[in-house]
Design a protein around this nucleic acid. Structure first.
Lengths: 342, 342
DNA sequence: CGCCGCTATACATACGTATTCACCCCGATT
DNA sequence: AATCGGGGTGAATACGTATGTATAGCGGCG
């Protein structure tokens, strides 16, 4: 067990070449002859040799590692990372591996300038920023990142802060599609559950799509039909209660988040309103619970795989090309029972 | 932007000391006087200096990084990482940060001996293995890990394979608690939904706890009341169908996983069986959807935070002390509507 | 026949840190 | 008074790799 780990010199000795040749052979340098390369590869295989990433990184001045940073100030105990981020995790890791990068993971919470540590200390070549919504309060942080030349990409609505490359779902189109689907099902008074306030920029885009769909059908959005709700079950319930309190009639709900939609659904069911017969519901996100609810929830599905891969792509582009463009990902309407036409 | 990153020599020059002194001051070496240390710290702060982890790791021969490895051969597209693992993620990251380690994340899928790369290439000092269930097929892999002196810890039932330190929930006790709760609610014919076959060792422990609770009440488990089900909604539905086909009467179900429990619930509701009046249900895992189902699902809650921290603790212990003991974590019964006494 | 150009390899070195050893200064001991 | 000891610091070095530069072999051309 005390046996020393093999180095490129050991491989060189075994293959009968010099250390630099080993390095070149393993990194695919074309100036190494095929025969020599084969000998080196065989020797490396035999000794279970793996390039020491510390030494390699030191020499090359980069780590071929990406850092993933969650901003989640809302969830103190941390159990509640946005499930959509979690579903991007797998695709991100795979994409990284495919591109020859590793993925380091972290939270913005412990120390206030934790985020810069990764690139400053060369642990990572760039950072993926994942935060639910409001980047406005983080703007100074982003500026510091730019100032230091740190490569980064972020997820979310590009609308608010124009700094760095952004990857996001086409929330506006999703809102449009969901609303149009309800309209095509014959619904005429469609409530919007979800705040249009800053802090949730995605929600604002979804609201805009909702408005556009209404207008495309010759209707005007009615402020009375909009009930504020954060992405939580209770908030969805409360929004329904608020709508009822106002006394406005509605035959459909478009909720800007699935959890609020499920809360709204529960509130309606408690009151004996049939779903989808009396009220049709469409959510947004397609969380796992959406297909498990009864009735199963229609929703706007975000492309988690595409999102994860796009983030990694964009960051690698930023690192290797120096700059990256933002990306807008298409969403897909998933129709289930909760919005079926009566 | 082209400015070179500061090195310990720059700090040394600014603080009027030598480079070794900078290194000592920053690593808390007591042989540096308090006054010198303060000067060095101030200089480091001023230049935004951060220790280069590549160089540091190269010199010290370790990386202070832990690798997290998911084994998920079942989910080909990867969107479906066990949600419980995902909920451990936050706590693990935080615990790592607290202990001065970083966390690297990966999947076992791409290349068959990917796993060993991390320690072989010094990217990580140890590995956390996360796989749903069956380690038997991975036994050769674990042996290779031991053989090479790689430090690792794994999550799951320690029962099957006795190799390396294991962290797991007390599944047997959870099964006991859930069953006892149903018995105390006056239920007498309690079905078990979830396979007791190898491949899901956790399920086997939950089954054992179920049996122990029955026997403690003077009853004997009835094989007719056990329906195989994997952790999936369809599988839960199918299990109920199977029970009905057999014609056995039951007034409660203990499901070894929440998703199967929700599937069973849906199947019963479709048939018009009232929950919990006619059939009480308890699941296992406490996934987010459990509290969102209607009625909300009673379940056995696993301690995600404790689990994540225990895994990190155990691995660091293995790395720094050379060996680590296994840990068994308590579970907690969470009673919701689905198992209320009529 | 000598020189040129090309290919394949070896030699030398730098990356930034942590550590071993030597050193110096100063107060205390013999 | 000379030496000893220890706290604090500096000089030198090694970690393992990647790369710029030099060198050996070798065929072709004038």
């Amino acid at each position: 067990m005390t046996q020393r780990r093999p180095t490129s010199f050991d491989i060189a000795a075994l293959a009968g070449v010099s250390q630099p040749t080993v390095s070149r052979a393993l990194s695919g340098n074309p100036s190494v002859s095929a025969e020599t390369r084969a000998r080196v590869l065989a020797a490396a295989e035999e000794l279970h040799y793996k390039v020491d990433k510390n030494a390699s990184g030191l020499r090359r001045q980069h780590s071929r590692t990406l850092a993933l940073l969650f901003f989640e100030e809302r969830s103190v105990d941390g159990a509640l990372i946005n499930p959509f981020y979690l579903s991007m995790l797998g695709p991100m890791v795979r994409k990284c591996a495919l591109c020859g990068y590793d993925l380091l993971i972290s939270f913005q919470q412990l120390s206030s300038d934790w985020h810069v540590d990764y690139e400053d200390s060369r642990k990572a070549d760039g950072i993926i920023l994942l935060g639910y919504g409001d980047y406005i309060e983080y703007q100074p942080l982003l500026e510091r990142l730019v100032e230091r030349g740190t490569h980064f990409v972020r997820w979310g609505s590009a609308g608010e802060v124009q700094i760095g490359a952004t990857v996001s779902s086409d929330n506006e189109q999703g809102g449009f599609d969901a609303t149009e689907h309800l309209l095509q099902g014959g619904r005429r008074t469609i409530a919007f559950v979800g705040t249009a306030q800053p802090g949730y920029p995605e929600f604002l885009d979804r609201w805009r799509g909702y408005c556009r769909a209404l207008r495309a059908s010759g209707m005007e959005p009615d402020e009375q039909l909009r009930a504020d709700a954060e992405p939580s079950e209770e908030s969805g319930r409360a929004a329904v209660a608020e709508l009822l309190r106002r006394g406005v009639a509605f035959d459909a709900i478009f909720a800007a988040s699935d959890v609020a939609a499920i809360g709204a659904m529960h509130a309606l069911q408690t009151l004996g309103r049939a779903i989808p017969q009396e009220v049709a519901i469409v959510g947004f996100d397609d969380i796992p619970a959406a297909s498990l609810s009864s009735p199963p929830l229609s929703t706007v599905t975000q492309d988690a795989r595409g999102a994860g891969e796009a983030l990694v792509d964009a960051l690698i582009e930023a690192i290797e090309a120096g700059t990256a463009k933002s990306r807008l990902l298409p969403v897909r309407l998933t129709v289930r029972e909760s919005s079926k036409t009566p």
